[in-house]
């Protein structure tokens, strides 16, 4: 890429970081016509007062909150408006998160959360994939409501398959994930094929190829210090609380435990693995499948590789 051009092209896209931001970013995309980062100004991108009224109306219909009609003037970014709606994260804490509504020509891609349980980072991938692709995220339980995290890959796969079937009762299915999500997606693919459904794509992505959001290397000692660090790294909203760190830690621990206690069953379909040239070979590259195809995306372009796989099969 031309370096002088590169400087200008990066206007600092920042992906949504929690369910409310994800939900708002998708509403924006629908009214403005293209995907936006959480710090982009609605009106400077061409959003007008009619578009703003639609967002306000969607908030009323989906979240049951009547915002003042001029709320977008005061809160013209996803980040800022989301801060007003943060308490509604719990309403959006079901496993299935619609990240991007495509034009329906390809089946939707379901991406399972990594060990932190979050799917916000997949929004950037969805956008890079192209706005004609529909993308759903599957997020872990226990991050935004007081339910217990699920510490079993099988149990996660069971509830995620149900959630997927609810929006798409019959296949074909496109599944993907990284880190814990690789294990859960593999288990989902096994389960779906056992049930007689067609899984057209199972793509497991090396976590080193994606920015996956907040992470722990060990159970946190001081949640407040962790929170400060995350804020410094811009991984969580500014109004996130130490309580969130506590929940995130329990979710992370549950995910770690789940994968440790799980062994992959044989999968009768083809498995596509996306590898990072600079990382150790991930365990999933050797999980049982009918055939495993290895890909090392050029320039780390995961979206380009996925597009090729979906386009080639869809």
């Amino acid at each position: 890429m031309n370096p002088t051009v590169d400087d200008v092209l990066d206007t600092g896209y920042r992906h949504p970081r929690d369910p409310v931001e994800l939900w708002l970013a998708r509403q924006w995309q629908e009214v403005i016509g293209f995907a936006v980062g959480i710090r982009e100004n609605f009106f400077e991108l061409g959003g007008n007062s009619l578009d703003a009224a639609r967002v306000v109306n969607a908030v009323l219909e989906d979240l049951g909150v009547q915002l003042p009609l001029n709320v977008m003037t005061e809160h013209p970014t996803v980040e800022s408006l989301a801060a007003r709606l943060r308490e509604h994260n719990a309403q959006l804490s079901g496993p299935l998160v619609e990240i991007q509504r495509g034009d329906g020509t390809a089946p939707p891609l379901f991406l399972v959360h990594p060990a932190n349980g979050q799917v916000g980072p997949y929004a950037g991938l969805a956008q890079a994939l192209g706005e004609d692709f529909s993308v759903f995220g599957l997020q872990a339980a226990g991050l935004y409501s007081d339910v217990d995290p699920v510490a079993s890959v099988r149990a996660m796969a069971h509830s995620y398959v149900e959630a997927v079937r609810a929006v798409r009762p019959t296949g074909p299915y496109l599944l993907g994930g990284c880190s814990t999500g690789a294990a859960v997606a593999h288990e989902m693919a096994v389960r779906l094929t056992e049930e007689g459904a067609e899984v057209r794509l199972l793509a497991l992505v090396d976590a080193g190829l994606l920015d996956t959001g907040p992470r722990f290397d060990q159970p946190p000692g001081d949640p407040a210090a962790v929170l400060d660090r995350w804020k410094e790294l811009d991984l969580v909203p500014w109004d996130a609380t130490p309580g969130f760190v506590g929940r995130a830690a329990r979710v992370w621990q549950a995910n770690e435990d789940a994968v440790r206690d799980w062994a992959p069953r044989p999968y009768s379909g083809p498995l596509d693995v996306l590898l990072s040239p600079s990382h150790d070979r991930p365990a999933f590259a050797d999980w049982p499948s009918a055939v495993t195809r290895e890909h090392t995306p050029r320039d780390g372009d995961v979206a380009g590789a996925l597009r090729g796989l979906i386009g080639g099969t869809g």
Partner: peptide, 19 residues
């Protein structure tokens, strides 16, 4: 060989043109 987000182009226009 260049890719650019639509939102970047829109923001670029937004710095020069009325909404």
């Amino acid at each position: 060989e260049v890719s650019v987000r639509k939102a970047d182009l829109a923001a670029h226009c937004g710095r020069r043109l009325a909404g």
